[in-house]
């Protein structure tokens, strides 16, 4: 079980490196989505490992709500990009 956790942590380092290196904001958003999902999966794995329902519920809520927040953020950034590129006033 510890081996799974170490593998998950190593997988988590990949999008963190990506978010650090890449200059494109959409690549950063992709890395953010990846990290948000991976951390909540990690929370769920730990909850199973410890047999702790409290952490498990938190992991489920973060996993389900995180996507909504990501969509909201992406929409805000997309509109900004549109205004910036087209030069039109909304």
């Amino acid at each position: 079980m510890n081996l799974i956790l170490i593998a998950l942590l190593l997988a988590l380092l990949i999008p963190i490196y990506e978010a650090w290196q890449d200059d494109d904001i959409w690549q950063k958003m992709l890395a953010f989505a990846s990290i948000a999902t991976k951390t909540s999966i990690l929370t769920l794995v730990i909850s199973v490992l410890r047999d702790d329902w409290m952490i498990g519920v938190v992991g489920v809520i973060i996993l389900s709500v995180g996507n909504a927040g990501l969509m909201l953020l992406a929409h805000l950034l997309r509109r900004m990009n549109y205004i910036g590129n087209e030069g039109t006033y909304d």
């Binding site: 978010a19 990290i35 948000a36 952490i55 938190v58 973060i62 709500v65 995180g66 953020l73």
Partner: peptide, 30 residues
């Protein structure tokens, strides 16, 4: 870019809080 990374920091810190046993703090952070 800093705001997106702030989101990443939030996700990681929610994980840390949850692992350390503060489920309510993790939920609030997320």
């Amino acid at each position: 870019h800093a705001l997106v990374i702030r989101g990443i920091l939030g996700a990681v810190s929610a994980l840390v809080y949850a692992v350390l046993g503060a489920a309510d703090v993790a939920l609030t952070e997320a």
